[in-house]
């Protein structure tokens, strides 16, 4: 029950975060709800994976792939390029936290005095920096996966059925 409540809370707040960024990016109001919902479901995929011990990079890849595939049929419905709602949906997954942990580590390196402190900071810089780059990479691969496997540049005329056919 505790975990269910926890997940529901994260589901809702991921959706709110996605919709909030949608408003900041001036997403048309007809796509705003889809963006929020997509973000919420992305959170629902990512957090259980992390809680059950999956690496955050893999969890982000799975959630972003989900967003990428669902945004194709959604794009047909509202006649909008898919990334208009897929980008707000994945913004909550952008590793901003790791990014500035890395930069803060770099700043702290300039004032570090002892060797052990230096080593700790170096570890933190590399660890957080690499995490940031790999998460970013997996998110952008995941989101553009439908395009990459269908070898097309536009989702117009692209349906899930056709995608299946292409994969086979």
């Amino acid at each position: 029950m505790e975990t269910f409540y926890n997940l529901a809370e994260r589901f809702i707040w991921s959706g709110i975060a996605a919709a909030g960024f949608g408003i900041l990016f001036n997403v048309p109001s007809r796509s705003l709800f889809s963006a929020g919902l997509l973000g919420a479901f992305a959170g629902l995929i990512k957090f259980p994976m992390i809680m059950s011990g999956v690496n955050i990079i893999l969890a982000s890849l799975a959630a972003a792939t989900f967003v990428g595939f669902i945004s194709v049929p959604l794009a047909h419905r509202v006649h909008t390029p898919p990334f208009v709602f897929s980008i707000p949906a994945i913004i909550p997954m952008i590793p901003g936290y790791f990014a500035y942990k890395m930069i803060l580590g770099l700043f702290n390196l300039t004032v570090a005095s002892s060797l052990s402190e230096n080593a700790d900071l170096m570890f933190s810089v590399f660890n957080n920096g690499l995490k940031m780059i790999f998460i970013l990479f997996s998110i952008s691969i995941g989101v553009s996966l439908p395009m990459l496997i269908s070898r097309r540049q536009t989702v117009k005329n692209l349906s899930i059925k056709k995608l299946k056919k292409i994969i086979q």
Partner: peptide
């Protein structure tokens, strides 16, 4: 509206973490 929704997104991040 932008200010409030982005701030809500900020508190959403805080909840997620």
């Amino acid at each position: 509206l932008i200010l409030i929704s982005v701030s809500l997104a900020g508190s959403g991040f805080c909840n997620i973490f």
